[in-house]
Amino acid sequence: MRKANRRLWITAGAAVVLVAAAALAMNAMSSAMVFFYSPAMVAENPPEAGQRVRVGGLVVDGSVERPSTGGANFTVTDGAGEIRISYSGSLPDLFREGQGIVAEGAFDGAGLFTADSVLAKHDENYMPAEVADALKESGMWHEDQTSSSQYQTYGDDAAEGAGS
């Protein structure tokens, strides 16, 4: 095969693969992209019932209810709004009241959010990025909360004489 020909089919082959990959990615992105809603955004302009979204906020103290059949119901807040979440799976071990979490799922017609996954991470300095942003906007977040590194946090505990 001549050199110019060879070049042509290599280029053509590569182009086909790249176009196919781009098409796949765009198609997948448009159907699998999930937007994040803070409770304030939900209060203002709720997503359609059934649309897959992520919501997040701080778990409201005392709002966690554990039905005897399994799963859990709880409320998250960003100070500007609240979302009631129902989750039938097992909560992550790091889930607790007052902690920032992100849940993925959809709203039903009545405004109850049914989550099929809940993400939580316990770290004194950690807050899911989306939740931190939403909290900053609502004024519930104070910058100095983030600045303390772990051992300083330990020191704070020491000062209170408590380890929670």
Binding site: A21, M33, F35, D133
Partner: peptide
């Protein structure tokens, strides 16, 4: 607006490739 890309995206794009 903040968005996330989860497993369905990868299963529809990377997996076929």
């Amino acid at each position: 607006p903040t968005l996330s890309v989860g497993a369905p995206y990868y299963n529809m794009s990377a997996t076929p490739l």
